[in-house]
Amino acid sequence: MSKISLELGSGGRLMRDFIAGKIVPSFADPLLRDLGDAALLPGGLAFTTDSYVVDPLFFPGGDIGRLAVNGTVNDLVVSGAEPRFLSLAFILEEGLESEVLDRVIRSIRTAAKAAGVRIVTGDTKVVRRGQGDKVFVNTAGVGRSIARPRPERIRRGDKIILTGTLGDHSLAVTLARGEYGLKSGVRSDCAPLLFLLPLWKRGALWMRDVTRGGLATVLSELAERLPYPLLIEEDKIPLSRPVRAAAELLGIDPLFMACEGKAVVVAPAARAGDFLRRIRAHPLGRRAAVIGEVQDRVGRPGELLLRTGVGGLRLLEPLTSELLPRIC
């Protein structure tokens, strides 16, 4: 008898197989089949949902409340929609200190205000002690679609822009759990990506926020849909010092680590310089960089390649399983 393992929720292959093999065919809906970060509904609406189970609830740079707002907001932004309304549902564990819940609610209020979204409906359930873990949050988001992502228009020479450093969120949460005996000044990058919205009107072709599975997973999934291989350059990928240190020390790869306030943007070749200037002009995009391009000099269609610091080529595959559970 098969049972659900933690691996299913890791963002890896098992999860993708589960969604493609069980969820999508069960409902056979063309809107679901696109599997974007949000569904684009008739009438110019975008609709998305996400659940948050991060452990611990509070970590440097963020908390579950802030994550629950920004995660859903960002799914709308990268789907070409301006976030407007959020639902808020709690699953609380019996015995939770109400002060903890108050802190989470305050954080949600602040984050929602900052992101310009209204919380307009919700739900609260309490489960017996041990049947949950302190606080789980679900948010659904509705936004007004301002542009449709156009991955089918991506051409050779188009540029891949990363809006900042990789892995800070994943590392901040892990170290907040006191794991690996490592301490650093790392902070989660949890933030709303609203400053990317104007790029849609300027011809952005595709965006995706870099969450579970990291940059390698996000770009591998894009590469699978394109007739050209993608090539990114290791030297151009911005990393914070704490992430660099953790990567060397623990042997983990920042390309597979989760962020909560970073996105990749595919820009038409002619606009890449303009896009980069605009992204860098925002405080959350200061370390943005063009990290690669759509090309056909190396690799085969469908592949994502990394040119290493010394000029070698490395094939990147989607994350198979994240070794760090419950980071979002």
Partner: peptide
């Protein structure tokens, strides 16, 4: 200390 991080050793 390793690249600005502290690790228990």
């Amino acid at each position: 200390s390793y690249m600005g991080s502290q690790v228990k050793v």
